[in-house]
């Protein structure tokens, strides 16, 4: 194999005439990956926590809502969900709303769809972690709270949730890593995030190995930062006496 390595290509200006270098493209891809993932993470935590709590409630109907949510969002491939949000939904919405969405700037469409889709998809997984975290608490805690005269809402607010959220930090970490990885699927609807930039760099520079290695390193950087951050958080929040605590 005679491959001509040329790492300098990354610092050359792009051939489209934009005021950027190929490294600049890479960095903008990195920015999009991080921005979309973080925004989606907020949705995932909020919706996932609500659904997870619903699933643990004694009211069957409320619990069924949480179950239905998880069943729907976990049994359709992520890429199909992206296409449903991006292609199908604007057509099924009332016409005025659909047309308004289609009149947005393409970048805005990509961003909003990706954040919503990725957020709600991850929420189903967060929901399962929240549920199993709450179910892992000793049953007596809830009973004791109720026996003391607290309402169910107060039991959750003052007893179950303060302990429960600290138990689920470790499993949630892996979901946080997953959301960055899953954001790569957003490239299929046109968002120029990291993995889309990998392909664009190959097309424009004709240096596939440099492009792919650079993008792979960027994902590695994200991974390391997240792991570092979460290890610190896990240490801060670990509960003495529970599994995994030091």
């Amino acid at each position: 194999m005679s491959y001509h390595w040329n790492w300098g290509i990354l610092l050359e200006p792009v051939s489209t005439g934009e005021p950027s270098t190929y490294l600049g493209w890479l960095l903008s891809g990195l920015f999009n990956t991080v921005a979309v993932s973080l925004a989606a993470w907020i949705i995932a935590l909020a919706v996932g926590a609500c659904m997870g709590i619903l699933r643990t409630l004694p009211d069957r109907r409320l619990a069924a809502i949480g179950t239905a949510y998880v069943v729907v969002f976990r049994n359709i491939p992520l890429i199909v969900q992206f296409f449903i949000w991006y292609i199908v939904l604007p057509e099924l919405l009332p016409k005025a709303l659909g047309d308004w969405f289609k009149s947005l700037a393409p970048l805005m469409q990509f961003y909003s769809t990706s954040v919503l889709c990725l957020g709600l998809f991850t929420a189903a997984r967060v929901c399962e972690q929240v549920r199993s975290g709450l179910n892992a608490l000793p049953r007596g805690q809830k009973a004791a709270g109720l026996a003391l005269g607290l309402t169910l809402a107060q039991v959750y607010r003052f007893i179950l949730l303060p302990v429960g959220w600290r138990i689920i930090v470790p499993p949630i970490t892996s979901e946080f890593l997953n959301i960055f990885k899953n954001s790569a699927v957003a490239s299929t609807i046109g968002l120029l995030e990291l993995s889309a930039q990998a392909r664009q760099l190959v097309d424009f520079t004709a240096q596939p190995y440099e492009s792919f290695i650079a993008v792979t390193l960027a994902y590695g950087l994200i991974n390391l930062s997240v792991m570092y951050l979460m290890r610190w958080l896990e240490h801060k929040t670990s509960l003495p006496g529970y599994l995994g605590a030091k």
Partner: peptide, 8 residues
Amino acid sequence: FPLVLVLL
């Protein structure tokens, strides 16, 4: 790494 990247 993302599966998308591995496939590519």
